Amino acid sequence: MKQAAAGFTLIEMAVVLVVVGLMLGGLLMPISAQLDQRNYTETRRAMSDIREALLGFAMANGHLPCPAISVSDGREDRAVSGICNKRVGFLPWSELAVPKLDGWGHLYRYSATQVFIDATPKVSLTSTPDILIKTRDTTGTAINLTNTSTVIAVVLSFGKNGRWSYSDQAIQAADGSTTNSDEDANASGTASFFSRELTANTAAPGGEFDDFVLWIPATLYFNRMVSAGQLP
Rank of each mutant, 00 (worst) to 15 (best):
K100D: 15
K86H: 09
A97N: 14
S94Y: 09
S94L: 11
W93D: 11
I69W: 02
I69V: 09
V80C: 02
L91Y: 11
M59W: 04
W93C: 07
A97M: 13
K100W: 07
P92C: 02
I83K: 15
D73A: 07
G105M: 04
G62R: 09
L101V: 01
S72I: 00
C84S: 06
K86T: 02
W104M: 10
L91M: 11
R87C: 09
S70I: 00
N85D: 15
V80T: 14
E76V: 00
P67C: 05
A97L: 13
G62C: 10
F57Y: 15
D102Y: 04
W104R: 12
A58T: 02
R87F: 05
K100I: 02
L55V: 10
V88Q: 13
A58G: 08
P67T: 02
G62H: 09
G89R: 03
P65E: 06
V80R: 10
A58L: 01
N85C: 04
K100R: 15
E95V: 00
S72M: 07
N61H: 14
P65T: 02
P67Q: 06
L54V: 00
C66P: 05
L64W: 08
E95T: 13
S72L: 06
A58Q: 04
A79R: 08
G74P: 06
P65L: 01
P65D: 06
A68M: 02
P99Q: 14
K86N: 07
I69N: 08
L64G: 13
W93E: 09
V88S: 15
M59D: 15
N61Q: 14
I83N: 15
W93N: 12
M59C: 14
L54R: 04
F57C: 07
A60V: 06
L54Q: 05
F57I: 02
G103Y: 02
F57N: 12
V71N: 14
A68N: 07
R87L: 08
R75M: 11
W104F: 08
K100P: 09
P92N: 06
W93K: 09
P99H: 10
H63F: 03
L91N: 12
R87K: 12
P99M: 08
L55D: 11
V88W: 01
G74N: 07
L54C: 03
L91A: 13
S81Y: 03
R75C: 08
K86L: 01
